[in-house]
Structures are given as structure tokens and as C-alpha cells.
């Protein structure tokens, strides 16, 4: 049990190479900005993201020829301000990312902890569920559900939440297995703690650092999947300004107006990159014992 060493005693005090700290900082800045933008969207948008103006169709961004200072990132094919739509799109991406992660986290962590802690038949059952989930093709199920139920924000969030829990379950199960044999669990039992208490108050806090990392990765995945579903026309219904939907709507114009497809693409890429960088940084800081 000598693993409780200095590394654990001084969480986050280890020195990392400068580029890794810089990468983490970048991740924090990107995700933090996205969060602020999502929250304060109504105050940041220069125009109504739904207002159409057919006289101002496909205006290029301000730094290109023909750009107008009133529409910094230009307008789309029906004259809606692109910057405003991007800002509201951040809201949808972040909302879906966070809510899908919460839903899938609840399912996956519960299953994983219970399976990992109790072992035996319970664990077999959880493993069976995980295997079942892994054999389900994500996009196909999402497409079917949306086709049957119809697309709405809530349906997308629920579908993603119900499909993305596998990694939570796997990580929670493995880490709960490592924790369940430690003495403080036995000590808690010997002090009369109930089962629920042991799972929630003794095990969960000690595997939370691993789960936070999974949460960031899943969030990036959820954001990408939403974009993919919206692109296929089965995600967020128009005229909601989802980035994937923006890309889909712009694809017919990309030959002459490439910015309409590049802008949401770049923003999507930057946000997902930021979330992943943040996840890597968190892993370095919290999971001192992951590398040993």
C-alpha cells in the first residue's frame, strides 16, 4: 500500500513541461470563453440570429473584399448575421455537451461503481450491459430515434446521454475495483457505514479525478456527434443555429462563398480541441497515479 506517496500528498504540484502547461491553459481559455459566450449570448450578439434580410445575402467577413463592418463574419444564404448565429450555436453545443455528459455520467458511473465494487454476478451483468452498448452503432441508433420521434434539442440530448455512458462505466468500474480493497473501505464498514454511504461517500470521491477526465472527453464527443447529427438533418431542427446545421446549410454555397462552411468548421474544431486539451491537463493534474 505504499502507493500513497508524495505524489498523492502534493496533488498538482508536480512540474510539467512548459508546452503541456501552455496547452492546458489554452484549453481552459477556450472552454472558459465558450462557456461565457454561451451564457451571455443575448448580450454579445450584434444582430438577431434569426432575422433574415435577403438584400444582405452571403456577405463575406469584414476582412475580405466586399465585407461590411456591421456583419463582422458576414451573413449566410438568407442574410442572417453569421457571428450572431455562431454565438447562439455555442450555446447549443455547450448545452448539449454538458447535459449529455451529465445524463451519461449518471448512468455510467452508477453502473460502473456498483459492478466494480460488488464484483461477481453484479459485475457480470454490468459488463454485459457495457458490451451490449459497445455493439450498438451510435450514429445509426441516433438516426433511428430521431427519425421515429422527430428531432428536437431534448431528443438529441437524451439520445446522446443514453448512448455515451460506456466509457464512464468502464472507468468507474476499473477504478472502483482498485479502491474497494483499500483499508479505508474496510474501516468504513467496520464503523457501521451503509452500502450506499460506502459507494457514494467513500468510493466516489476517490475515483472522481478519473471520471472528470472521462467527462471532458465525452463532452468533446457529444459536441461532435451533435454537429454530425445536425449536419445529417437529424439533430437540432432549423432555424436553431447549431454549428452542424450551419455547415449543412452552407454546403451548397461553399464553392463561391467558402467562409460559410469554414467559419463554423473552425469554431467546432477549436472548441473540441479546447475541451480535449482541458481533459489532458486535468488528467495530468488530478491523476498523479495514472502514470505509475
Amino acid at each position: 500500500m505504499s502507493s500513497v506517496g508524495i505524489a498523492q500528498a502534493l496533488p498538482g504540484r508536480r512540474r510539467f513541461p512548459a508546452f503541456r502547461r501552455l496547452a492546458t491553459l489554452l484549453g481552459v481559455v477556450i472552454v472558459g470563453t465558450a462557456l461565457l459566450v454561451a451564457i451571455f449570448a443575448p448580450y454579445l450578439t450584434p444582430h438577431d440570429p434569426f432575422a433574415q434580410d435577403l438584400n444582405l445575402r452571403l456577405i463575406p467577413p469584414v476582412w475580405m473584399e466586399g465585407g461590411q463592418p456591421t456583419h463582422l463574419l458576414g451573413t449566410d444564404q438568407i442574410g442572417r448575421d453569421y457571428l450572431s448565429r455562431l454565438i447562439y450555436g455555442t450555446r447549443i453545443s455547450m448545452l448539449i455537451g454538458v447535459l449529455a455528459v451529465i445524463t451519461s455520467g449518471l448512468i455510467g458511473i452508477t453502473l460502473g461503481i456498483v459492478g466494480g465494487f460488488y464484483g461477481g454476478r453484479t459485475d457480470d451483468f454490468v459488463m454485459f450491459l457495457i458490451t451490449c452498448r459497445l455493439s450498438i452503432p451510435l450514429i445509426l441508433v441516433a438516426l433511428t430515434v430521431v427519425a421515429l420521434v422527430g428531432s428536437s434539442l431534448a431528443v438529441v440530448i437524451l439520445t446522446l446521454g443514453l448512448l455515451l455512458w460506456d466509457r464512464f462505466a468502464v472507468v468507474a468500474r476499473t477504478t472502483a475495483m482498485q479502491v474497494r480493497n483499500l483499508d479505508y473501505i474496510a474501516a468504513a464498514q467496520a464503523a457501521g457505514a451503509s452500502r450506499v454511504h460506502i459507494l457514494v461517500r467513500e468510493v466516489l470521491p476517490n475515483i472522481a479525478n478519473h471520471l472528470v477526465v472521462v467527462a471532458t472527453l465525452e463532452m468533446a464527443l457529444a459536441i461532435l456527434l451533435e454537429a454530425a447529427l445536425s449536419f445529417l438533418g437529424l439533430g437540432v431542427p432549423p432555424p436553431l443555429p447549431s454549428w452542424g446545421l450551419m455547415i449543412a446549410e452552407a454546403k451548397e454555397y461553399m464553392f463561391f462563398s467558402p467562409w460559410v462552411i469554414m467559419t463554423p468548421g473552425v469554431v467546432l474544431f477549436v472548441l473540441v480541441l479546447g475541451v480535449n486539451l482541458l481533459g489532458d491537463g486535468l488528467r495530468d493534474m488530478l491523476g498523479a497515479d495514472l502514470e505509475r
Binding site: 505504499s2 483499508d183 479505508y184 474501516a187 464498514q189 464503523a191 457501521g192 451503509s194
Partner: peptide
């Protein structure tokens, strides 16, 4: 479990790991 930690207590061998970090 009502008795454990109340009327019967137990101390373990490894003080380094028997407290929840």
C-alpha cells in the same frame, strides 16, 4: 452495521490507508 463502530470498534493494520484520503 448499527453495532459496528458503535459498541464494537475495529482498528486496522495499515494506518496509511485506513483513512479516506
Amino acid at each position: 452495521s448499527r453495532l459496528r463502530g458503535d459498541k464494537i470498534s475495529m482498528i486496522f493494520q495499515e494506518p496509511m490507508t485506513s483513512l479516506n484520503p
